[in-house]
């Protein structure tokens, strides 16, 4: 359960999450120039659509978070995309909540951005398919575990009585991390073969990410 609903967290945790999200979104908006927004929006919509498919893992079924994937493809712009996806999920499906938007955005986006920043350059540079798959799987699995740890600590920080619940929740993230590792490795392998420029968090056809919008983009 990556979406914490309204009515559980304490006020300091909600405010802290909101502040960190505001900072992350400010970073994201600096990265999101006019040429990047259509790509970010359509990627966000694809991740939203992909997250509606339930993947069976052991006895239960989960849906992929793909935050590591978004981190590799969008960089810090992930914060804005995750915030938008969570707002839409709260309004259209009632998942998550309004007051927890900030905390949930941090929990999902931050691990993806951090691990993609750390391992992304190696993923793009390596010529070996096996190494790429291993690194991409690591980004996927670590992002999910990071999300689990952040969800658990948001609960534990809100009230110490939640600690046992939080550790049970953390255990349910283990199978999800395994599934996410395989799915992320498969997606990155697929994109590296089919459209390697998609793995860069800038519009690849222009020399610099801040190229004026009038520059025609070359067909991929």
């Amino acid at each position: 359960m990556a979406h914490i609903p309204d009515g559980i967290l304490s006020l300091p945790v909600l405010i802290g999450g909101g502040l960190i999200t505001a900072g992350g979104v400010a970073l994201a908006l600096r990265r999101l120039d006019d040429r990047m927004i259509p790509r970010a929006a359509i990627l966000g919509a694809a991740v939203f659509a992909g997250s509606l498919i339930a993947v069976p893992v052991g006895p239960s079924s989960v849906h992929v978070l793909l935050s590591g994937m978004m981190g590799i493809m969008l960089g810090t712009a992930t914060f804005a995309v995750v915030l938008v996806i969570l707002l839409l999920q709260a309004l259209l499906f009632g998942f998550g909540g309004l007051t927890t938007l900030g905390v949930n955005t941090v929990n999902i986006a931050l691990p993806g951005v951090v691990f993609a920043l750390l391992l992304g350059p190696a993923i793009r540079a390596t010529p070996s398919g096996v190494l790429r798959a291993a690194l991409a799987g690591a980004v996927g699995a670590l992002s999910v575990l990071g999300t689990g740890a952040l969800v658990a600590s948001s609960l534990a920080l809100s009230s110490s009585e939640f600690t046992p619940v939080a550790s049970v929740l953390l255990a349910t993230y283990l199978p999800l991390a395994v599934g996410e590792a395989f799915v992320t490795a498969a997606i990155v392998g697929f994109l590296a073969r089919v459209q390697p420029e998609a793995l860069r968090p800038v519009i690849a056809s222009s020399a610099s990410p801040s190229a004026p919008p009038s520059t025609p983009s070359s067909a991929s």
Binding site: A49, I53, V64, A186, L191, V194
Partner: peptide, 10 residues
């Protein structure tokens, strides 16, 4: 599923 989502992204 990885290929499915990869194709969706492409």
């Amino acid at each position: 599923y990885g290929n499915l989502i990869g194709m969706l992204l492409v």
